[in-house]
Design a protein around this nucleic acid. Structure first.
Length: 172
DNA sequence: CGGTTTTGACCCGCGC
DNA sequence: GCGCGGGTCAAAACCG
């Protein structure tokens, strides 16, 4: 599946606690290419003492529906995928961008479905997939594909709104 | 009422 | 060619 898989960091917008706390940071900028910059203060999230927090690089990903009927088959531009393994009990890890869900599919050998999101910013076709591992349901894999053509949407959302969207997790 | 989510259908690539 | 799995579309439902 992935071409490369190496430990690098942790998703900067979650924590190892029972709830992913949205911590917005303009330093999280996929436009930097591989320059994923994590805030030092995010280090608390790297408390999982194993290699489960990592980045997956996939340089040769097929281009979705570029070849749909009625469309010219374009030379496939290379798009990189960046995947974060995140220990979190919530699926929605707000990264400062606004996403619209456009699909959900059951994944083979996984009891949890995979969700597909697209950046809502006009002209920006960055996508991401969110999937939970069936082995360890506390691990969420978020895969980003493409590069944002715009800066991070500032934190228009207030915290209350975010919590609503997250369906706050209440530990038993 | 406009934006988002849901969900079944559809498309495509790949292996057999 | 066929079936399977993954990815996307698009209409309807939902929601603030």
């Amino acid at each position: 599946m992935e071409d490369y898989c190496f430990p690098v960091g942790v998703h900067p917008f979650s924590s190892s606690s029972s709830m992913a706390v949205p911590q917005f940071s303009s330093s999280f900028n996929l436009n930097e290419g591989l320059g994923l910059i994590f805030q030092p203060k995010m280090e608390e999230a790297v408390q999982v003492g194993d290699d489960r927090n990592r980045i997956i690089l996939d340089g040769k990903h097929k281009e979705g529906d570029q070849n749909r009927i009625g469309k010219k088959p374009k030379p496939k531009p290379k798009r990189h995928k960046y995947a974060f393994h995140t220990r979190s009990r919530v699926d929605i890890l707000d990264d400062g961008y606004r996403w619209r869900k456009y699909g959900q599919k059951a994944v083979k050998n996984n009891v949890f479905p995979r969700s597909y999101y697209r950046c809502t910013h006009s002209g920006c076709d960055v996508k991401k997939q969110v999937q939970r591992l069936s082995k360890d349901d506390e691990i969420v894999v978020t895969t980003y594909e493409g590069i944002h053509t715009h800066p991070v949407e500032k934190c228009t959302d207030n915290f209350e709104h975010i919590l609503k969207k997250m369906h706050i997790y209440v530990p038993p």
